[in-house]
Design a protein around this nucleic acid. Sequence first.
DNA 1: TCTAACAATGACAGCGCTGTCATAAAGTTA
DNA 2: TAACTTTATGACAGCGCTGTCATTGTTAGA
Lengths: 341, 341
Amino acid sequence: MPRKRNAHRSPDMPTLADVARLAGVSEITASRVVRDQGPIAETTRRRVLAAIAELGYIPNRAAGSLASAGSTLMSVLLPSLSNIVFPDVLRGIHTALTHTAFQPVIGVTDYDPLIEERILVSFLAWQPAAVILAGLHHTPTARRHLEHGRFRVAELMDIDGDPVDIAVGMSHRQAGYETGRHLIQRGYRRFGYAGHSVATDDRASARYEGLCTSLQEAGLSLVAEHRQPGPSSTKAGRDSLEILIAADPSLDVVVFPNDDMAMGGIFHCMHSGIAVREKLGIFGFNGLDIGQAMPMPLSTILSRRFLIGLTAAEKLLESRVRPQEKTIINTGFDIIEGATA
Amino acid sequence: MPRKRNAHRSPDMPTLADVARLAGVSEITASRVVRDQGPIAETTRRRVLAAIAELGYIPNRAAGSLASAGSTLMSVLLPSLSNIVFPDVLRGIHTALTHTAFQPVIGVTDYDPLIEERILVSFLAWQPAAVILAGLHHTPTARRHLEHGRFRVAELMDIDGDPVDIAVGMSHRQAGYETGRHLIQRGYRRFGYAGHSVATDDRASARYEGLCTSLQEAGLSLVAEHRQPGPSSTKAGRDSLEILIAADPSLDVVVFPNDDMAMGGIFHCMHSGIAVREKLGIFGFNGLDIGQAMPMPLSTILSRRFLIGLTAAEKLLESRVRPQEKTIINTGFDIIEGATA
DNA sequence: TCTAACAATGACAGCGCTGTCATAAAGTTA
DNA sequence: TAACTTTATGACAGCGCTGTCATTGTTAGA
């Protein structure tokens, strides 16, 4: 006995067959109109469109995806949405996908590779056309899925490593290195580092290493460092700097892993009457608007987050199949001199 | 002639049939193990699980969704990710969905009801189990889809209105009203308002109206107001306050639509040597961490964003079908006295 | 006038999974 | 021991759409 139709769907939920019947065409023709694909006579198209509007038809993408063994989904896995960095990337992706058939689907991994793996697998169950993730470091299982899948892959933010398919970003190691060079050139000698404790923030770690390298080359080294437990935040930056200064008051500059924490550092200085730049230089990373809107604009490095998202999505749209050659796109960075270091 | 299998899928992409064959059971039994549904003998379950692991099987959710006429997706439509407010809501949703079968799917509407409608329709094509959106105001088409769909609906942030199914949030009108009362009680009389030009930020508008009402009741009114073109940002707040003060230097307090802009206002005061609170009170909305981390904590209203997301998602999980009764949950708000007004 | 090329449409089967009902075996109650 | 319930499993069809191939005009070129 066949399954009753109404057990499945509301009677008023029209299918493509209903549209086709009303328009007086075959299902496949209606399907072609919906997908804007193949040659369709203008009059036919109009009839079908009218039928769609009249019925309030919404295509069933699960059926479409099943039949065509593919979807128009683009899975986006981001470590966090807690500061503006990844939303900026997301805006870039959105911008590239506007007026295409693709839809971004967002997951948040909390900087945890295992969560990333779990979300990746659950996204792959929807047969996405492409997967976008942050960084080049994933669990072995995740990497295997990424390599064997029939979809494009873009790894964002970082280019220091071996991508699966496309990498778009900048060298964080080099950014850290240039930070050190810049500050040394400006006369700073007694460096502190005020970080956070998220060990899987690979980019922050790479910048830290780059910084240390440039100090070493100049015969210097970090005088003091402190990592505040928990994730990065303005409060963490403020607390971290307080502890750092208590440990070593002789510091003349402190580098933070990002602008949020650096702003916390500035707030601590304001609170404690420490003259920023004269007495203590403060340097961040990201070039957030809020830091530049401060009375004393934050000295930092501008990462091109919107561009990274935009470029990655555009690149992914170029071809549905993964090319032989891997692509690495360096979006670079700029030092913002600012007024705090 | 039947379609060739390999035209569709990689040969090494196993299906449930492959799993069932390897485990020596029927497809249905394998399916039940995957979905953890129905009575399964422990030994059978283990055999199937082993087969899944061996083959690296990933279920095809499009097929599952098609067959069951439903999905485990929860569509989340947010106006913006450009400040921490909606990511906080999202964290709440994520927290509620951890360890459930549901997956959030996020879309960003840019405060545009038409974009919201477009994204809603494209999400409905995936037959979500629930839809979460911000606010109670949608296009007529969107509202119709929401009302007629076979899914749960939660409208977040705002409770001043008539929800489709569930509303979780606070009264922004009342928040604006209490802001006025609080500031009047603290002795402020010459009120300014420094906003932005996004007309569809309904919550900001409601707070504005509430503020005006409380002023009226006290025999006062806004002395000056300015709306900076473009979306809300720290820079916009800074510029807006500058213009406002130029227009009327006699103001003794300025209310901003949110903390981001209020911080911009404080930055302007710092830059121009205006004594915050003594000379000019500054009041925000949201209670963001960054505002509280400032040397002079921002006077503002705490909205419970995480709680809103969490509560909404939990409520949606309670039942798959829409109950007769609509639910309105007021998560309330708190005035944070701070040091700026 | 005939062929070739193209434009426009349709028939058919099947994508991978799950709802429904049926069945067999084992346990429970009177 | 009969009658029932519970547990564990399977057969079958179909969810709504699209890939593939076939068919019918229609127009251009020789």
